[in-house]
């Protein structure tokens, strides 16, 4: 079924909204009433229709607007895209993966025709129809990684594997929860996770790294991460902190429903064939509190998660200023009834 792409903004007048159907498919990340870090990875396999697992690279009604927002971010700050020179094979791996998955999941919107090394890529929502030579950088208007990630929702990092570690050696990062590719590029797995509280002490990163180093071709894996954002703003980068940081002081008991958003990252990790690197897809989904409480189970559970969140996480996720207002607002939607297991709506 063809997706109806919304016209909307993630800045200035913030016209981003989820349609009722899109709310039901929101990837609510909490499978119980409290939250703590864990190595919460599971195989990234296709799931039911009407969920974000329908395709392994999810495309939804926000696709066109998100790609327009990415183009604006890159125009203002080209360093949001970077790739170190030894990552060219991984760039082509990524282009192949994203084209194959988008074409397989959404044949009415994307078509890939391969004729040896001569490829034709048709992206109907963005009006693109390009023919190029796979492996020949000069036949595309951008680096292959930049080219395809200007046409795919989510942030993308390619990590190189060497010396028993993973290295952040390429990225397209414009929809991030307050981290900077320009700062992290070239860092290893432990270095770029340095600022995360509590998780290091309980060994989460040692176990996660061990697991990822053994990630196998054809067996991608996924996990959730989450935070909250004021206004539906995709680009909450350190570089633009002056634009979005002050938003956090604007939450009042009356505007929680429209201002406060749950921000969920569906992260999927893929071993790449030619380069042996790993593609890290960080797909961001935003939902306002007004939208979220239309699913009673999620309203009850988010209220309980926020109430019991350890103070270190409240600070690290930047919720300190508006957490109390949000809990008070959500409490009106929590009657204390038990919640069903799992993440999906009842």
């Amino acid at each position: 079924m063809a997706i109806v792409f919304r016209q909307e903004t993630f800045r200035d007048d913030f016209t981003y909204r989820n349609s009722p159907g899109n709310i039901r498919r929101f990837p609510f990340p909490f499978d119980r009433d409290e939250y703590m870090y864990s190595v919460n990875m599971e195989p990234h396999v296709r799931g039911q229709a009407g969920t974000v697992y329908e395709s392994l690279i999810d495309v939804d009604e926000h696709y066109v607007a998100e790609m327009q927002d990415r183009a604006l971010v890159l125009k203002e700050d080209p360093l949001r895209y970077q790739a170190l020179p030894h990552m060219m094979a991984a760039q082509w791996d990524t282009l192949e993966l994203l084209m194959e998955e988008q074409a397989a999941g959404y044949p009415e919107h994307f078509t890939l025709i391969r004729n040896g090394d001569r490829w034709r890529w048709i992206n109907r929502p963005l009006g693109i129809d390009d023919t190029f030579t796979f492996g020949d950088r000069s036949t595309l208007p951008y680096d292959p990684f930049e080219y395809i990630t200007r046409q795919a929702q989510g942030d993308f990092c390619i990590v190189d594997q060497r010396d028993g570690n993973l290295w952040m050696d390429a990225g397209m990062v414009t929809t991030q929860a307050d981290w900077s590719l320009d700062f992290d590029i070239g860092m290893n797995f432990m270095e770029w996770h340095g600022p995360v509280p509590l998780a290091h002490q309980i060994g989460v990163f040692d176990r996660a790294l061990k697991f990822l180093l053994k990630l196998q071709l054809g067996k991608p894996t996924r996990r959730f991460n989450w935070t909250m954002t004021i206004n539906p703003r995709l680009d909450t980068s350190p570089e633009n902190y002056h634009k979005w940081g002050p938003d956090r002081t604007t939450v009042t008991p009356d505007n929680v429903g429209e201002k406060v958003h749950l921000r969920v990252e569906l992260q999927s990790l893929w071993r790449l064939p030619r380069s042996n690197a790993i593609l890290f897809v960080i797909r961001c989904y935003l939902i306002s509190m007004n939208e979220l409480v239309t699913v009673p189970k999620w309203a009850r559970r988010l209220h309980r998660v926020l109430k019991t969140l350890p103070p270190e996480l409240v600070d690290y996720k930047g919720l300190t200023r508006y957490r109390d207002n949000t809990i008070a607002w959500l409490s009106k939607h929590d009657d204390g009834a038990p919640t069903s297991p799992g993440i999906f709506p009842d």
């Binding site: 190189d160 060497r162 196998q216 064939p273 042996n276």
Partner: peptide, 12 residues
Amino acid sequence: SHPVNLFHADKR
């Protein structure tokens, strides 16, 4: 099995 690489060249 699918190929597994534990002996990759350092591309740098």
